[in-house]
Design a protein around this nucleic acid. Structure first.
Length: 574
DNA sequence: GCCGTTTTCGGCCCGACTGTTTTCAGTCG
C-alpha cells in the first residue's frame, strides 16, 4: 500500500506547485509520475528503483525514495509553509483554476473559500486584471455550487435517465445517431454528468431543439457544437451534448468517452505515427488528409492498437501492456449463478422458491441462499436450528424446480470480538459460508484486519462479503490492511466478494485489479439481493468487474456447479 | 521534471467556450 501513499503525496505536490505558478510541464511530470506509481503492476517496494517506471527520472525518484523512508516530502512541506493552507480548496470551485487563484491571492490576499465569497460580495474581484463583472457573478455561482456539494450520481440511477434522454434526443428531426459517452459509457460506479454525442448535418437546429426539451431546467452553455444543460428527471443532472457530422461520429464518440487520461495517451501515440487525433478524426499533416471511421475497432486498428473496451480506457495499463495481455473481459452470459441472496427467513422479502424461480428466469444454473446469522437480530438472523429447517425448505424447492440448483448457505457475522457467529459443526453442514462484518466499524485497523483474517483462517468460511464495508456517498470503508487481507486470502484459498449492490460495489475496481495482478486472487460477484427484482443489480457488479480487468476465470460465478463445488472444497486443502 | 531509430535541447495532447480582451488567456473535459 506504500504505492498509494506515494501517489497521494506526489499529487499534492503537483497541486501545490501548480498554485505556486511552477512550470506547467513540471507540474504535469509529477502528475504523470503519480499515475505511473498508482498503475504499476509491480508495487514500488518490489522494484529495483522508482526509475524503472516510465516518466520517473532522477528528480522524482529521489522524492519517492524520501516518501518511502520518511513518509513525507520536505519539498511539499516547504511549499505548504509558503502557501496558505486554504488555497488548494479553491481549486474545487468550478471555473476557478490555478492562475486566477494566484491573482486573487497576490492582489487581494485571498486564502480560502470564505474570504473569496466576501470579496465577491463586496465587488472587489471585478477590478482585478483578467476579471470582470461577469466573471465575478460566475464565481459567486461557482461558490454556491461547490457548497451544495452535488453528490455524484450512482451508475444504477444514471443509466435509466440516460436511456430516457437518449430516446428524447433520437426523436429530434435531423438527428442521425445519438449515443451516451463519458464515464457512463465507461461504467464508472458514479457519474458527475451525462455526456452524449449526436450525429447531425444540422447542428444549430438540433441544439435548439435540445434546449427546448421540457425537462431542461437551465441552459448552461450553448455554442456551435456543444450544448450544456441541466435536466430534471428524478433528480437534477448536468448533461453535455456534442454535435458532430455523421462521418465524425465515431471519433467524437471515442473522444468523449475518454477517459481524459486515455485520450492523452491515444494522441501521443498518434503523434508518434505523424498524425493528429481530435474529436473529428485523425489528421495527417504531411498529406493534409483526414481519416474517419465506421466504428471504434477501425480507429484502434488505424493506430496499430488492439480494441479496448470503454470500461478499461483509464490509462491504467491498457496502453502499455502488449495486446495479448489485454483482458478478455467478463461477459454477462458467462455468469451462471448468484451466491449471496436473502429471503424472508431473515430480512429479504421473497421465499426461497420465488428467488429460485427468478434466478432461473435469468438463465442461472445455481444460486445460494445466504440469510443473516443470529447475531444480526435487527435483520432477523437465523439460529443453528433455523438453518436446519431452512435446509429442509431448500431441499423441497430443489425437488420441485428443475434446471436450477439451490445451495444452502449463510451470511455469518464476524462478531465484534473476532469470533464467528456459529461453531464449526454448524458451518460444516452448509454448502456456502459467507462471512462478513456488520458491527464495530469504528475499531482500529489492526483489530478489524484481525477479525477478517481470523474468519478467513476458518476452514469452513468460503467467501468474505463486501470486504471493506463502504457505502458510496454514505459511509467510508472501515480501516483495513488490505495487503494482509489479500495475502491471507491467497494462502487460505478464501474468495473475496465483489458485492454488486449499487451502493456497495465492494471490493472496488482498483482493489480487484490489484488482487488479481499482485496476488492472483479469485473473486465472487454477488448481488446480496433481498428481492427477486434486485437480482438485476448483477449488471452493476459485472460492470465494475470489467473495470477491474476481470476475466471469466477470475470469477467463481462463471464456473459450472461441479467446478464451483470443487473450488469451494479447496478451502479444506488450505 | 522527463525524454530521445529524426533530438542531450526543446519540446511536452487537443479543441470548445467564456470573458476579457481587440488577438488571447484561462478553464474544462
Amino acid at each position: 500500500m506504500i504505492s498509494v501513499h506515494v501517489a497521494v503525496v506526489l499529487k499534492q505536490l503537483a497541486d501545490m506547485m501548480e498554485l505556486k505558478g511552477e512550470n506547467p510541464f513540471k507540474v504535469n511530470a509529477y502528475r504523470r509520475a503519480a499515475r505511473a506509481v498508482e498503475n504499476s503492476r509491480t508495487p514500488l517496494d518490489s522494484l529495483k528503483g522508482p526509475e524503472e517506471l516510465p516518466g520517473i527520472g532522477k528528480g522524482t525518484a529521489a522524492v519517492i525514495r524520501e516518501i518511502m523512508t520518511t513518509g513525507r516530502s520536505e519539498q511539499l512541506e516547504k511549499i505548504k509553509s509558503q502557501l496558505p493552507s486554504g488555497l488548494p480548496e479553491l481549486l474545487t470551485i468550478p471555473g476557478l483554476g490555478p492562475k486566477s487563484i494566484h491573482v486573487l491571492y497576490r492582489e487581494l490576499g485571498i486564502t480560502g473559500v470564505d474570504e473569496l465569497q466576501q470579496a465577491v460580495e463586496a465587488g472587489r474581484v471585478r477590478h482585478l486584471s483578467g476579471f470582470g463583472e461577469k466573471k465575478e457573478r460566475n464565481l459567486a455561482e461557482g461558490i454556491r455550487q461547490r457548497n451544495k456539494r452535488p453528490q455524484r450520481i450512482l451508475l444504477v440511477q444514471a443509466l435509466p435517465l440516460a436511456e430516457r434522454l437518449q430516446e428524447r434526443i433520437e426523436k429530434i428531426p435531423h438527428v442521425k445517431r445519438v449515443e451516451p459517452a463519458g464515464s457512463l459509457r465507461r461504467r464508472k460506479e458514479t457519474v458527475k454528468d451525462l455526456d452524449f454525442v449526436v450525429a447531425t448535418e444540422q447542428p444549430r437546429q438540433v441544439a435548439e431543439a435540445i434546449t427546448a426539451i421540457p425537462e431542461v431546467t437551465k441552459v448552461v452553455n450553448h455554442g456551435e457544437t456543444k450544448v450544456s444543460i441541466l435536466i430534471e428527471m428524478e433528480l437534477v443532472i448536468p448533461v453535455d451534448i456534442r454535435l458532430v457530422r455523421p462521418q465524425q461520429f465515431v471519433s467524437a464518440l471515442h473522444h468523449f468517452t475518454g477517459s481524459k487520461e486515455h485520450n492523452v495517451r491515444i494522441r501521443q501515440r498518434a503523434k508518434e505515427l505523424g498524425w493528429k487525433v481530435s474529436e473529428y478524426g485523425i489528421h495527417e499533416p504531411a498529406t493534409d488528409r483526414d481519416f474517419t471511421f465506421q466504428d471504434e475497432q477501425e480507429m484502434f486498428v488505424k493506430l496499430g492498437l488492439p480494441y479496448m473496451e470503454p470500461e478499461i480506457r483509464e490509462d491504467r495499463g491498457e496502453m502499455d501492456v502488449p495486446a495479448e495481455r489485454l483482458p478478455r473481459l467478463l461477459q454477462r452470459n458467462e455468469y451462471r449463478g448468484d451466491l449471496h441472496l436473502h429471503t424472508r427467513w431473515s430480512d429479504g422479502i421473497a421465499t426461497v422458491e420465488e428467488m429460485a424461480v427468478a434466478a432461473k428466469k435469468r438463465g442461472y444454473s445455481y444460486i445460494a441462499i445466504t440469510d443473516h446469522s443470529q447475531f444480526l437480530k435487527v435483520a432477523g438472523g437465523l439460529t443453528a436450528d433455523d438453518l436446519k429447517r431452512q435446509r429442509e425448505e431448500i431441499d423441497r424447492v430443489n425437488e420441485k424446480i428443475a434446471g436450477i440448483t439451490v445451495l444452502a448457505g449463510v451470511e455469518m457475522d464476524i462478531l465484534p470480538d473476532g469470533r464467528l457467529d456459529y461453531p464449526d459443526d454448524v458451518l460444516q453442514e452448509l454448502d456456502v459460508v459467507i462471512a462478513s462484518i456488520h458491527s464495530g466499524f469504528q475499531q482500529e485497523k489492526a483489530r478489524l484486519t484481525r477479525r477478517i483474517i481470523g474468519a478467513m483462517e476458518n476452514p469452513y468460511v468460503h467467501i468474505i462479503a463486501h470486504p471493506t464495508g463502504r457505502l458510496i456517498n454514505r459511509r467510508e470503508p472501515y480501516a483495513l490492511d488490505l495487503d494482509e487481507v489479500f495475502q491471507t486470502a491467497k494462502e487460505t484459498g478464501t474468495i473475496l466478494e465483489l458485492n454488486a449492490n449499487p451502493f456497495r460495489l465492494d471490493l472496488n475496481e482498483q482493489y480487484l485489479k490489484r488482487g488479481k495482478e499482485e496476488f492472483g486472487l479469485t473473486f465472487s460477484i454477488n448481488t446480496d439481493a433481498h428481492s427477486p427484482e434486485t437480482l438485476s443489480h448483477i449488471g452493476m457488479g459485472l460492470a465494475i468487474a470489467r473495470r477491474g480487468w476481470l476475466e471469466a476465470d477470475d470469477v467463481i460465478n462463471t464456473y459450472s456447479l461441479e467446478q464451483l463445488q470443487e473450488r469451494l472444497a479447496q478451502k479444506w486443502g488450505g
